[in-house]
Amino acid sequence: MAAGGDHGSPDSYRSPLASRYASPEMCFVFSDRYKFRTWRQLWLWLAEAEQTLGLPITDEQIQEMKSNLENIDFKMAAEEEKRLRHDVMAHVHTFGHCCPKAAGIIHLGATSCYVGDNTDLIILRNALDLLLPKLARVISRLADFAKERASLPTLGFTHFQPAQLTTVGKRCCLWIQDLCMDLQNLKRVRDDLRFRGVKGTTGTQASFLQLFEGDDHKVEQLDKMVTEKAGFKRAFIITGQTYTRKVDIEVLSVLASLGASVHKICTDIRLLANLKEMEEPFEKQQIGSSAMPYKRNPMRSERCCSLARHLMTLVMDPLQTASVQWFERTLDDSANRRICLAEAFLTADTILNTLQNISEGLVVYPKVIERRIRQELPFMATENIIMAMVKAGGSRQDCHEKIRVLSQQAASVVKQEGGDNDLIERIQVDAYFSPIHSQLDHLLDPSSFTGRASQQVQRFLEEEVYPLLKPYESVMKVKAELCL
């Protein structure tokens, strides 16, 4: 049975990233139509530049190519590739079939990587351009969430054990800070992308030097003109047959890092959902379990974690691919890159769409948070109580021993009897502590235990987050809708 299948058929496997999760716009960027249309555009740009620099290419040939950029006979191309065992030459023939007058000058002087690699770089750039505003929107939604809850005390956790208090907004800023680093890295790697350009079979530009009869300047002009037509500021000066596969490492490393950030955020949300302090959106008709109707599973956060793990592992592909590119190139890269580049971007696209949807509907339960604080705060307040007693004339050592005994009794009630923490009640009825009984409410005010959390939130948002989001103001209103 021949390899390949009808990918629109229910009898043929289709990647869930495309069929179930990723956005239509990201799927289109990695589609065959987008790819092969870009090949034709690159052939047109090459012909236009070659004509401008004096090669015998007519206006009629150029116009014929322009008129057929979208006229792609995919069936013919597939048949040609089956016959020739070469995808680029299959599309040269297919393009030439609908451009008979231009057929002889299509791909003039070029090698397969002229269309293959340059198209990949265009796709990487455009895919990054799709991700950047999506990530900015996630940051914006979380920034709104953090600002609104900047002063809401909550129990902090280290080692997932109760620690000092923080605020809900401050905790959210930990998430935002990681995503801001990801946004900066995505922008950097996007701006650092260079075009492969017009380089020939081993990167020496020998074929173009021959076409222009040894004119170095025209060869350099050709490279520059096509690079500018493709919208790049610069091209690699040095290439082998391909652009260095280190570029793929750079791009997928940034995406993998984004995956790590999203995994951490969504894990926190899942843990908070278990504590009943916070939940992701839950639709009115949504079913959490087929057997347990009360369940409210954090399905979206779980999906993000599941896909983020996949995204983090994909960076190993370009690392290994770059390491086995012998001399000017081997074909070890080809099949692998067809999979890992598309999957990385479709996965990143999915987790950003999902995280935006989550961040637009996060639900906080202040009463649950308050109750958990009441359970733990008495123990945390013991040092403040000791200091207040010393100020009232008591002995630190005597007070410490009193607190120690009462704390152990209260802990026994919590752990052995399943009761509430009654340390404060014990202190309130103990005559030894009568000098500070009137101060206990103040000493137990949760806001006095959150330090500068709310001020940190305000400063972080104003100095770091809002300036970073400013270039994306025009796209901030787009909502994230999930079908599944």
Results as ranks from 00 to 15, higher is better:
P24N: 15
T242A: 12
K101C: 15
Q456T: 05
K284I: 00
S67G: 11
H263W: 14
L84W: 07
A308W: 05
R37N: 13
A235R: 06
S290I: 02
N384D: 13
L252F: 12
T167N: 03
L69E: 03
G259I: 02
M380D: 00
P446L: 11
P298G: 06
I105A: 00
T204R: 06
D248Q: 11
Q164V: 10
L307P: 13
H217D: 04
K134M: 00
G231A: 13
A90M: 11
L331Q: 09
Q456H: 11
W45M: 11
H217A: 14
H107T: 13
Q61D: 02
L275Q: 02
G394S: 05
I351S: 04
L443D: 00
V189M: 11
G214P: 00
L174E: 08
L346A: 05
N357P: 15
W175S: 02
I436N: 12
T313L: 04
R85K: 13
D349V: 04
D223L: 14
W45R: 02
D73F: 14
K75M: 00
K199R: 09
Q51P: 03
K276L: 08
L142Q: 15
D191V: 03
Q408P: 08
T119M: 00
L468C: 15
L319F: 15
E425H: 10
A127E: 15
D178H: 06
L331P: 03
H86C: 04
Q164F: 07
V363M: 02
L142A: 03
R245S: 10
L469R: 04
H442I: 08
I62K: 08
A453R: 02
A49G: 04
N421V: 11
K229N: 07
A146Q: 13
R337Y: 13
V168G: 05
F282N: 05
E328V: 04
R338Y: 09
F327L: 11
C172Y: 12
C172M: 09
R40P: 13
E148T: 04
T38A: 03
G200M: 07
S19M: 09
R426A: 15
V262K: 12
C305H: 15
G259L: 13
K199Y: 07
D248T: 08
T350Y: 06
D268T: 13
R459G: 10
K367T: 14
L128W: 03
I238L: 07
E383A: 11
E360Q: 13
K75L: 00
K66S: 10
L193W: 01
K66V: 06
